[in-house]
């Protein structure tokens, strides 16, 4: 099956996923007790005011009607108005979502770029000192709570050494808005001071968020490599007299990456949702804060909007994973 076919199939699937997710989220958020109209109007507001508010928000109509109206708007790209901020939810998401994605991607890159070499090193030096150190590091990574690590890093690098900023996304004005990712926007517009500042701000939160995944990636690559190194074709490569580097990098790593890609794709989902704590610690203006506040205020449109966008992102990431998979594994390419 061709790449184009897979992409087409997944995009069709995406419609169903968004429909299902919106239905479930809608049902749950309307079933939990609480009245957003009352919350908006205030504790002491008269019943008339609350009823008016309810009518304005459309909450007086039957649930099915409300849901259909929501779907109709969704199909037109309208996610509704946030009850809390009184701004279109879409605008809020455009403002906050890139920050979270930027953080998650940076954390993932950190985990992959460091984790893959460490895992390979650990596997080829199995049970030797390098392996012991790496394994300790990976267990530490997996078992360290992000908020604790975050506070520690802030204390060290911001409080004590003062070499990295401890909060926010950037100092001074943000770069021209193109994608919403400050690092990318700054690089695209050639705004080097902004790029430096954005990268510096990104460093500690990404390290915090990525540390857990560094442990997971290292472990995964190590065990996949150990397995692959036992395969007959590695024996063939050795019997052909190839050098160790060729065997490890050309023959083994390529095959070890195949099972690891799935795991990394799933990790991205974790990163999106796991960003909340890290964002709180670093006062990172991302989705985390926005969602927590929306939930507290029963801000249905905002909660729905976030869920729909996040699940879309998740499906897209998994599509990317599958495409990578096809690229790496010729057998999948054939079967689809």
């Amino acid at each position: 099956m061709s790449f184009a076919n897979v992409v087409r199939r997944r995009l069709i699937l995406l419609v169903f996923v968004v429909f299902g997710v919106s239905l479930v989220t809608f049902a749950i958020s309307h079933m939990i007790p609480g009245d957003p109209a009352r919350m908006m109007a205030g504790e002491r507001a008269s019943n008339e005011v609350v009823a008016h508010m309810r009518a304005v928000l459309g909450l007086d109509k039957p649930l099915a009607v409300q849901y259909l109206a929501y779907l109709r708007h969704l199909a037109q790209g309208d996610l509704g108005i946030s009850i809390l901020t009184q701004r279109p939810v879409l605008d809020d998401l455009v403002l906050f979502f890139p920050a979270t994605i930027e953080l998650a991607v940076a954390a993932l890159l950190f985990a992959i770029l460091l984790g893959v070499p460490l895992g390979v090193l650990s596997a080829i030096a199995k049970d030797r000192a390098v392996d012991q150190v790496t394994r300790t590091l990976s267990v530490t990574g997996i078992s360290t709570p992000a908020f604790w690590l975050g506070l520690l890093l802030i204390y060290l690098f911001y409080g004590r050494l003062g070499i990295f900023p401890g909060s926010g996304r950037i100092d001074g004005p943000p770069p021209l808005h193109l994608t919403g990712f400050y690092t990318l926007d700054a690089a695209l517009t050639g705004n080097w001071p902004a790029l430096a500042s954005a990268l510096a701000h990104l460093f500690l939160p990404a390290l915090t968020l990525g540390f857990v995944h560094l442990g997971i990636v290292t472990r995964q690559i190590r065990s996949a490599m150990l397995e692959v190194l036992q395969e007959d074709y590695v024996r063939t490569a050795k019997a052909s007299g190839l050098s160790r580097a060729q065997i490890v990098l050309d023959h083994a790593l390529r095959n070890a990456l195949i099972p690891s890609v799935t795991m990394i794709g799933l990790a991205f989902g974790d990163l999106l949702y796991g960003a909340v704590l890290t964002e709180t610690v670093f006062a990172w203006p991302g989705m985390g804060n926005y969602v927590v506040q929306s939930i507290a205020a029963l801000d249905f449109p905002a909660i729905m909007g976030f869920t729909v966008v996040a699940s879309t992102a998740y499906v897209l990431v998994n599509l990317a994973v599958d495409l990578t998979y096809m690229f790496l594994d010729p057998q999948i390419r054939a079967v689809g």
Binding site: E231, D232, Y233, R235, T236, A237, A239, S240, G241, L242, H251, R254, N255, I258, L328, D329, P330, Q331
Partner: peptide, 18 residues
């Protein structure tokens, strides 16, 4: 692989699948 070489049972697993 130069002056001595080997061929194994089960060629399916002795060749690199990727």
């Amino acid at each position: 692989g130069d002056r001595m070489a080997m061929v194994y049972q089960d060629p399916g697993s002795a060749l690199n699948p990727s």
